[in-house]
Design a protein around this nucleic acid. Sequence first.
RNA 1: GGCGGCGUAGCUCAGCUGGUUAGAGCAGCGGAAUCAUAAUCCGUGUGUCGCAGGUUCGAGUCCUGCCGCCGCUACCA
Length: 506
Amino acid sequence: MSFYVTTPIYYVNSTPHIGHAYTTIAADIVVRHRRQRGEETFFLTGTDEHGSNIPRVAEEAGLELREFVDRNAAAFQEMTVRVNASNDFFVRTTDPRHGALVQEFLQRIYERGDIYEGVYAGLYCTRCEAFYTEAELVDGLCPQHGIPPDFVEEKNYFFRLSAYQEALLRLYDERREIVLPSFRYNEARSFIERGLDDISVSRASQRWGVPIPWDTSQVVYVWVDALINYWSALGFARADEDLRPRFWPEVRHFLAKDILKFHCVIWPALLLAAGLEVPRQLFVHGYLLLDERKISKSAGNVIDPLDLIDVYGVDPVRFYLFRVATFGQDGSISLQGLHERYERELGNELGNLLSRTTAMVARYRDGRLRAAEVSGALGAQIDRVGGEVPARLDEFDLTGALELVWELVRSLNRHVEQSAPWELAKDESRAAELDRVLYELGDGLRAVAVAVASFVPDASERILSALGQPLELGWERVAAGRFVETDAIEPAPPLFPRVDAPTPAG
RNA sequence: GGCGGCGUAGCUCAGCUGGUUAGAGCAGCGGAAUCAUAAUCCGUGUGUCGCAGGUUCGAGUCCUGCCGCCGCUACCA
């Protein structure tokens, strides 16, 4: 079974913020988990570099076009690396190999008859790359950007989106889970239901883009160019293999709610028109709100994820985002919340659990941990994590999956208190009891490490190392009693050391 | 206007196809312990489950209406 995951390709018009990191991390968690289950995976992310905004913004920045997109693409590549995303490829739409496949894709639709020539006249917001009707404007300005739209009249090529209404409805009816969560499915379906207008897929007045193959005086509309990346990248990501037969259409697209229509309506229609299969699934997540407010430049509350990573490290940021907010819904984050979760849950509940466990093994048993039996309730809970976490991740309930693992962390701390190894250590006749408790703690912590590996990969490794366990993450190891005997456990250094509290000014 | 989401303890939220005295975490208060990054554990909640009706033996959970917040979308004589 192959499993292909994508993030949107991010627009190099601006630099990365926490919202980009959120989508990338979500996709990464899911794909890492699938690898743990031994599935064949491919994880794609990248940048969207065409469109009329780019020449304008580049000029404002005083840079050559190429220089500008290279610089901003590099910022997204750095973000990808810094959040520890395990992507298999990073696609850029300015890559000529992408351009060639975009042309091939459009040519197919053209030849099959669903692209025709027409004239578009209307109000156009260059920032949105979208046309507006008078009614959509607010005080005559673009509702998104608050700038006056331009009146544009030009010859364009149109895609017969309107012809795909029935096919799309049929698709939605046959595959209820094509768009998740279900309320996003409803949103997309009702949009299709009320009728679709044809869309312009070319721009006559622009030069920065992929030329229309049969009329090189025009370039491909940036959104169409961008969507095709999901299919094109598989064609050239590997020099020695076209990956499309292997991974298309087993794709899961992750995206934020603002680009639902492009992904859930236009993209499947384009694929149908090109005679290709539609995506297996699309997951539409919500927005992160900073202190209850939408994150935006105009609100002045943009967070650079790299700043947070500099202070707390990458794992805590990955952890926090899926701990506070239910994935799929909008969710509130705050610097203080991150700090509190870091301290309490990562530092105290998990980090300290490792510290106390390893310290006791070192102190009472000279670092030796021998196989013993894992008692009923605890063993059952470990096995339950192994069984139920995959089910939650299969439906992209990242928050629920993490909560299940955390309940096990809490149980282990409770187990320490209830069995009080320091009491057992005082009584030679209870040596076997002590051995068993220490083994249970070690085994439970080991299982936790494997179970949270997709969320906090670095910490997972450090836990396994501290316990003298092999760095093997196969999901079958999330089960009781898989601890490998060892003689070399030393008191572990703090897994998540204290950091200074954030300044109120932020 | 249509469609959809949300409204549950001070705060953040779970509560799937209706069923024992409505839950978790945080914060607060009280206590225990000392293996540990003073980290942990235990106890502690008189909540009109937005409001009003209805269906049912039984509703936070279904239906209707209404109120408030939000999203998508349409339209305006």
